[in-house]
Simulated assay, not measured.
Amino acid sequence: MVKALNCPNCAATFDPTENVCEYCGSYIITSKSKQITYDSNDFKLANKKIFFHDIEMNTNEFPIRSGLGNMYYSITKSDGGRLLLTNQRLIFCAHAINLNPNLYWEVYLDEVVRTALGLNFFISQRIKIFDVKGSETTFVVYGGKTWLEEIGRCLN
């Protein structure tokens, strides 16, 4: 059974399997998939807003890849949630089952200096994001090499 959700744009009830609000036409991504790469043609909706859960995309911004991920701090500490790559930024939102359930992190791609592949675990990999402020942020994701390839395409 699919439960109804509310559109983050107009607050109308919508069916999450449809992805489009029938009242305002906003495109709402609510994927529960481990990893998904989007087709940019799906988002060429004239004058329609695009939301990733409750996060509104900027003008001319569209999703490229999303998936489960952990923001990694140390071997004993991380926050789980979803990582989203758009053509403009990389966004992480923690899910509700965390010590920091309201954690939100983002970096605009023009602030990314480089990326690197970290340690490889059986089915997951660490990816490291280095920004112009000298910060290093590490995520544990499925398909780390694919994430880095997609980020690399966006940076070029």
Rank of each mutant, 00 (worst) to 15 (best):
L45G: 06
S78L: 12
Y27L: 09
L148M: 04
E56Q: 15
E61W: 10
N19R: 08
S74K: 06
D39L: 09
N98L: 01
L155F: 02
N19I: 05
E61Q: 12
S78T: 13
L119W: 11
T137I: 15
K77Q: 15
R82M: 11
G144L: 03
K145C: 06
I151M: 04
N102D: 07
G152N: 09
F130E: 13
S124N: 10
Y73M: 14
P8A: 01
R126P: 14
P63I: 05
G134Y: 12
E22L: 09
I29Y: 04
F122Q: 13
D79T: 15
P16K: 02
K34Y: 00
V140N: 07
N100C: 06
G80Y: 08
E56M: 09
G152M: 11
S33A: 04
K145Y: 02
Y142T: 02
E106Y: 09
G67F: 08
A12G: 08
G134F: 07
D39M: 05
G81T: 00
M1I: 08
R82D: 14
P63A: 03
E56P: 04
S33C: 01
I151D: 00
R126K: 10
I36V: 08
T59G: 02
I55G: 10
V141G: 00
A94I: 09
L5H: 05
W147T: 02
S31C: 09
M71T: 04
N98V: 02
C154I: 08
F51M: 12
W105F: 09
F62K: 14
T115F: 02
L119K: 15
H53F: 13
K3C: 10
L90H: 04
K77G: 06
V112R: 00
S31A: 01
L103F: 06
E61I: 12
S33E: 03
S135P: 13
